[in-house]
Amino acid sequence: MSFHQQALGLRAERQQVLATNIANADTPGYLARDIDFSATLAKATAGNAAAGPLALNTTQAGHQAASGAGLSLGADLLYRVPTQPSLDGNTVDMDVERVNFADNSLHYEASLELLTGKIQGLRLAMQSENS
């Protein structure tokens, strides 16, 4: 469940980055950004085990360490390598952005479907037999 949660959050974040690129397709000097999805997801799921951002402070010897997963995505915004930069310094390639946006939307929906399946499975398991 946590994996899909992280993936969904990351997809939503990437969706926003791509929307920013499409919005600024005509802005002089704007540099297209993107996030490396798989690397960031690997980092996010690995960081889950370590102390997350919602970790409890331990100030006494008796305190137990506890870590919350939170949304420790911390996606690194990278710059897209331009294939055909325009004269005004804009590096947004509309085709690339549109393709990535559609791809990301589909993956977001897929993550959503998987989460729905998990939730429905859990709900089924929680229902009593004779209901």
């Binding site: 920013t20 919005a23 005509d26 802005t27 919602l54 911390g74 996606a75």
Partner: peptide
Amino acid sequence: GLATQMASRSAGLGGV
């Protein structure tokens, strides 16, 4: 923690 993390996460996003 949280606030600065959120601010840095949304940095680089914006409209026109």
